[in-house]
Computed example of a mutant assay.
Amino acid sequence: MTAFDLRGKRILVTQSDTFMGPALCDVFTELGAKVIADARALADPALPETMVRAAGHIDVLVANLAIPAPTTPAAEVDDDEWRHAFSHMVDPLPRLMRAALPQMMQRKSGKILLMGSASALRGMKRTSTYSAARGAQIAYIQSVGVEAASHNVQVNAIAQNFVENPTYFPAEVQANPAFQERLRREVPLGRLVGQREDALFAAYLCSDAANCFVGQVFPVCGGWVAR
């Protein structure tokens, strides 16, 4: 038994077939939640409202938003790359909030969790576009989290890096000796955080056991820290 469960909770997970989506859906279901999994990317401005309306009553919204991370040098980043990152990872957030927050605020109950990235917490070469979009996500969640707290709605984020997932660390990357050496060199844990480990932490933040956290950003990085 875990110290918490999700029995009876209706949880909407976006981009459910990418990034942390598959692991989240599995763990949430295991803990008793009714998972509403939607695999669509959210670049279409109308889709977040349509998605939430179709889901009906939701107790938890998990904003699982991801794109393959560009590695363009900063001096070569063009408008298309920048716009693509923001249209898929940043622009959907206020649309999701407009769709989901009113019902939660009316009930005085609900949670919204962003699955974000620690790339926003530490400068890294050739990640300017991706890190900027992830940083915008975090700043937005911190602000909305403080605002929603008075309505008993908890809005938080996980900022992760070196967490096993099919989008950023697929099996072929993990099998690369150079990557394994990088883990030993850069990550105190010496390995990737497991998908299940990360999903269980997300489940905790989606549960009633975590009602005290608002506008928080939780690094999950195998011991990797911002500096």
Rank of each mutant, 00 (worst) to 15 (best):
46 A>M: 11
187 V>E: 13
50 T>P: 03
66 A>M: 12
65 L>W: 00
186 E>K: 13
110 G>L: 10
177 P>G: 10
57 H>G: 05
46 A>G: 15
69 A>N: 01
165 N>P: 14
101 L>Y: 15
204 Y>S: 00
172 E>T: 10
44 D>T: 10
164 E>Y: 11
154 Q>P: 02
7 R>N: 14
37 A>G: 03
66 A>V: 11
101 L>M: 14
39 A>K: 09
187 V>A: 07
2 T>Y: 11
128 S>A: 14
26 D>L: 13
220 V>F: 09
119 S>Q: 12
89 M>K: 04
220 V>S: 11
153 V>Y: 03
83 R>Y: 12
32 G>H: 08
75 A>G: 03
26 D>S: 15
104 M>C: 08
184 R>F: 09
221 C>Y: 06
167 T>F: 02
216 Q>H: 13
103 Q>E: 10
92 P>T: 07
62 V>N: 02
107 R>P: 02
96 L>G: 05
112 I>A: 06
119 S>N: 12
185 R>C: 03
227 R>P: 14
193 V>P: 05
180 Q>V: 04
204 Y>M: 08
78 D>C: 02
132 A>Y: 01
107 R>V: 07
158 I>V: 12
71 T>K: 14
1 M>H: 15
77 V>H: 01
50 T>H: 06
188 P>G: 06
160 Q>L: 11
100 A>Q: 09
88 H>M: 02
111 K>F: 05
31 L>M: 12
64 N>R: 03
152 N>W: 08
54 A>L: 14
186 E>Y: 08
156 N>F: 00
160 Q>P: 06
93 L>E: 08
13 V>Q: 02
161 N>K: 10
40 R>S: 14
66 A>N: 07
78 D>F: 01
98 R>H: 09
119 S>I: 08
155 V>A: 08
76 E>V: 12
144 V>P: 04
3 A>I: 11
156 N>E: 10
11 I>E: 02
159 A>G: 10
44 D>I: 09
143 S>K: 13
8 G>C: 13
28 F>L: 01
175 A>V: 04
52 V>I: 13
16 S>M: 04
180 Q>I: 05
43 A>N: 07
7 R>L: 03
177 P>M: 12
176 N>I: 06
24 L>P: 01
37 A>F: 09
88 H>S: 10
132 A>M: 08
63 A>D: 00
171 A>T: 10
121 L>T: 01
223 G>P: 14
110 G>K: 06
41 A>E: 11
167 T>I: 02
50 T>Y: 03
165 N>K: 12
146 V>M: 14
122 R>L: 10
82 W>E: 09
199 A>Q: 03
94 P>C: 12
14 T>E: 04
179 F>N: 01
96 L>I: 06
207 S>K: 00
124 M>W: 07
211 N>Y: 10
59 D>A: 09
89 M>D: 01
101 L>R: 04
19 F>I: 02
139 A>K: 03
226 A>T: 00
55 A>K: 05
213 F>C: 07
196 R>K: 15
199 A>V: 01
81 E>R: 10
183 L>F: 03
80 D>I: 11
49 E>T: 05
67 I>C: 05
36 I>G: 03
40 R>Y: 03
